[in-house]
């Protein structure tokens, strides 16, 4: 796939899900034993083209996610490189024990793609908004957890996951007109964070589409001459320990995620940082362990204090 300005703009317009669909098709043309399994979400996962172009590499298991994981593991055990995808809560929480036994315990290698995670499906309510997937899956060994920041990173993360030895959960957030974080190609490695903006007073760790709001918040803070480092922690597990070592030198550590503040990126950071004698204070921004009312994506981000202005407000309140 040619990574140029035009495509980056196009991928941003169509959003992470549709980009995933195109990327899966391109990868499947190169990797002979690749198979995509889904649960009746071909259109929503941007897989219409895949289904029409490579029908014999595509299996729809119907709305049966436990069976999805078992069948995918059976295929993987026979040497196929399998991607599964459905909406995030059903891809993770519904079939959690199948994920534990097949991927965690048996180490059958599968790339699971959870679409529409976080708050993007707010108008559908919290049956569809998935804010617990990272927390739940983090406790299962032998499973990478990656949350790409934009459409380009979705492509790079998918390629890395498909070529990885270990199973990966790819958490897709954001909606169409997904803001552009990377306007040109860059090096992506599972487990290695990407510093987007440099600074030395505060360090913001974020993952997923919410990264854009963190960049905007950083700009506002820079104008108040507070120097902010923004780090895209696309891989929540295995977490990048080097950057966390570096974070010990900052006045304030801020974690930002479209996820419950319990169990997600913030918790992963705090777990590691708590091993230092006096690690800096950490501010956890995310869903405060509640299922609030529904609404549009922007409304919900604002309501859960994840829009740039509220992020700045909360940071300033915690900067002594």
């Amino acid at each position: 796939m040619i990574i140029d300005e035009r495509n980056i703009k196009m991928w941003s317009t169509i959003g992470a899900r549709a980009t995933f669909g195109i990327a899966a098709l391109e990868i499947a043309k190169k990797i002979d034993n690749l198979i995509v399994c889904t649960c009746d979400v071909s259109t929503s996962a941007g897989l219409d083209r895949f289904r029409k172009t490579l029908p014999d590499k595509y299996y729809d298991l119907g709305i049966a996610e436990q069976n999805l994981i078992g069948v995918a593991a059976g295929l993987a055990s026979e040497g196929y490189n399998v991607i599964t995808t459905t909406f995030a809560p059903f891809q993770t929480l519904r079939c959690c024990e199948q994920i534990k036994v097949n991927l965690g315990y048996m180490k059958q290698k599968i790339c699971m793609v959870g679409i529409g995670s976080g708050l993007a499906l707010g108008t559908l309510g919290f049956t569809h908004c998935c804010v617990e997937d990272v927390g739940v899956l983090r406790s299962i060994p032998n499973l990478n957890i990656v949350s790409p920041a934009d459409s380009l990173e979705t492509i790079k993360a998918l390629e890395a996951a498909v070529n990885s030895e270990k199973s990966t959960y790819l958490r897709l957030t954001g909606s169409s007109n997904n803001p552009i974080i990377y306007n040109k190609d860059y090096e992506f490695k599972i487990g290695k964070s990407v510093t987007l903006v440099d600074g030395n007073d505060i360090i913001i760790f974020c993952a997923g589409a919410i990264t854009k709001n963190c960049l905007t918040a950083a700009e506002i803070l820079q104008k108040k001459n507070i120097s902010v480092k923004v780090v895209n922690m696309h891989t929540i597990k295995p977490i990048d320990k080097n950057i966390l070592d570096e974070s010990q030198n900052f006045k304030l550590i801020v974690s930002v995620e479209e996820h419950n503040i319990y169990g997600g990126l913030g918790s992963a950071i705090a777990e590691y940082n708590s091993t230092f004698t006096n690690s800096p204070k950490q501010l956890f921004l995310g869903i405060k362990d509640i299922y609030g009312s529904g609404g549009t994506y922007d409304y919900l981000k604002e309501k859960h204090r994840l829009d740039p202005e509220k992020i700045v407000e909360d940071i300033l309140k915690n900067l002594d």
């Binding site: 703009k9 169509i14 941007g46 219409d48």
Partner: peptide, 15 residues
Amino acid sequence: IPEWDSIGHMTLMSG
């Protein structure tokens, strides 16, 4: 035509 599907449409609009 297959190219003018939902994804193609979004690309056309942005173009």
